[in-house]
């Protein structure tokens, strides 16, 4: 039995890891780098991720490219919740990793200090903004993670990183 289960895992993970379709979600300058990565000089198609979907229902990967403000945060959470499992999140850029240059309390009232406060994040790509090569490095790391995972480990990961926020009055609040 053990052999069969690992084989199914292997085939599923092989298929998943080589066709990660990202969601078109660019909120600021990191989005430009994300667009650049689809062009022929960088060519994200080498990793099977060239099919940017306009609908969260067809996407496997949320590349959050850009600053997330409190007004945008409910939209991000809703898009994430609309994506079907298995779904993965890449936090691209300093702002999504931890607030970036808006991160001190005196600096900005409107920016979320890292999207890991809202969603479970698989891969963090710092830099401001990351080059397409850095995005590919993140995608390759994500592919390696997917190839290692089993159904149970993913469940465990999602159980440890539950979404604790909810939209109310236009902003995200704790449940």
């Amino acid at each position: 039995m053990g052999i069969i289960v690992t084989t199914i895992d292997y085939v599923l993970n092989w298929g998943r890891s080589n066709s990660i379709w990202p969601l078109t979600f660019a909120t600021s300058c990191c989005g430009i780098e994300m667009i650049c990565s689809t062009t022929s000089s960088f060519d994200i198609a080498r990793f099977g991720s060239e099919v940017f979907r306009a609908s969260p229902r067809q996407a496997d990967l949320l590349i959050c490219a850009g600053t997330i403000t409190h007004k945008m945060a409910p939209v991000l959470l809703r898009l994430y919740q609309q994506m079907p499992e298995p779904k993965y999140v890449i936090a691209m850029g300093a702002c999504t990793c931890g607030g970036g240059m808006f991160s001190t309390p005196e600096d900005s009232y409107a920016v979320v200090r890292g999207i890991d406060k809202i969603l479970p994040v698989d891969i963090f790509i710092p830099m401001c903004p990351p080059k397409p090569e850095a995005l590919f490095d993140g995608i390759i790391k994500l592919q390696k993670n997917i190839r290692k995972e089993s159904i149970l480990t993913r469940k465990q990961f999602l159980g440890n990183h539950k979404v604790k926020l909810k939209e109310k009055d236009g902003i995200l609040q704790e449940l």
Binding site: Y109, K164, L165, I171, L172
Partner: peptide, 13 residues
């Protein structure tokens, strides 16, 4: 004189 002290956004600190 604005200070951000919104209880609803404590999760963001």
């Amino acid at each position: 004189d604005y200070i951000l002290n919104d209880e609803r956004l404590k999760w963001n600190e």
